[in-house]
């Protein structure tokens, strides 16, 4: 059994891990299945969107997708065409930190990339 201080510390740790909630009922503690429910929700809660622009070359966009997003050439071409024809393409679903990092990298090549909450 955890003491009150132990429960508080545990809740604090769980909050630090961005868990959604921690319910304390009497001497028991109920948390969601941290390994599956919450982590999967938070893991891929953000999209990276690349927008069309008239300047970047098609070959260049394909190259950057392969380089930054580690796509195959066929995947990179498909997403490039989506950007070109539909104005944008969702190129990754990640946790926020990773998605933010990808946006930075894509922008370092001059692509118009943004972060979008799912």
């Amino acid at each position: 059994m955890l003491g009150v201080n132990g429960l508080i510390r545990l809740c604090h740790d769980i909050n630090r891990l961005s868990m959604s909630y921690c319910e304390i009922r009497g001497a028991t503690i109920t948390t969601p299945d941290l390994q599956t429910e919450n982590l999967s929700e938070f893991d891929h809660g953000w999209s990276v969107v690349v927008w069309n622009d008239p300047i970047n070359l098609m070959d260049y966009v394909v190259y950057v997708f392969q380089k930054v997003l580690h796509m195959s050439r066929a995947q990179a071409k498909k997403h490039m065409m989506e950007v070109h024809q539909q104005g944008k393409s969702l190129v990754a679903h990640e946790n926020r930190e990773k998605a933010e990092h990808l946006v930075h990298q894509l922008q370092s090549y001059g692509l118009t990339a943004t972060l979008q909450a799912l």
């Binding site: 300047i55 970047n56 260049y60 190259y63 370092s108 090549y109 001059g110």
Partner: peptide
């Protein structure tokens, strides 16, 4: 080189 030339283009 790609990034820098792209800065100029953009």
């Amino acid at each position: 080189l790609l990034q820098i030339t792209n800065d100029r283009r953009l």
